[in-house]
Write a protein that binds this DNA or RNA. Structure first.
Lengths: 113, 113
DNA sequence: TATAGTAGTTACCCCTAAGTAAGTAGTTAC
DNA sequence: GTAACTACTTACTTAGGGGTAACTACTATA
């Protein structure tokens, strides 16, 4: 196997790990919403209007398990819960910026046409 | 709606467009494989060993429709087909680099632990 | 004559991601 | 007393993404 092929295989392997975290319809939107600051359950729901509470709850749990977000309970009245990005979550920002920047480019080139 | 919320909504909208193109198990691996040069059907299959010809064919068609890859037929014997990234496909490189770079970070932090 | 390589297609099945709707539990305001 | 807010959970259903296996069609080679 050539050096080039080895690098290609390595990148494919690493991308599979990344994909497992961001796969699905809702994970990236949730993470993007949280890059704008810590938010409560209902606030995220208001950002992503089409998401159901079931999916939001489920995907937040998955992101917690992958150490991307933290869940903090405040025993205020009524009880509020705050979700925040971990350092690992914040480390996705460059990637997200590039994704969004490419998305805008794509929209201009293909969607908007 | 505050300025911050407007920017958040804009980014969420744009990311949805990008996600539609890269969603699924196979699209990013295929694109990554093609960043290493134009390749034939069989070559991509050898890069991504787990992919079936059905899925490869199906996903290449979808990427063609989204103007990410081109399909070129050579009437050599036997007939060969070459897949290549379009300029729009190449414009994903920065994003892919960041994704792969983050994937490596994630692997070190969570998967490898 | 049959095996292997080119690049797919087709038919069938299955699982799970995602959607829908309703319920839970506690507090506060009207 | 009932509606509304907080943050979910649970049960049921469905669409389609993806897997498997076999088949097509043509050429070259042993």
């Amino acid at each position: 196997m050539s050096q080039k092929e080895k690098v290609c295989q390595q990148k494919l392997m690493v991308s599979r790990d990344a994909l497992e975290v961001i796969q699905g319809k809702w994970r990236l939107p949730i993470i993007i919403s949280l890059t704008f600051g810590n938010k409560r359950f209902g606030e995220i729901q208001r950002d992503i209007v089409e998401i159901s509470p079931k999916m939001l709850s489920q995907e937040l749990k998955a992101l917690e398990e992958n150490k991307i977000v933290t869940r903090t309970l405040f025993d205020s009245m009524p009880v509020t819960v705050e979700y925040a990005l971990t350092p690992l979550g914040h480390s996705m920002k460059k990637m997200l910026d590039e994704l969004i920047s490419w998305g805008a480019h794509f929209r201009k080139e293909v969607v908007g046409k």
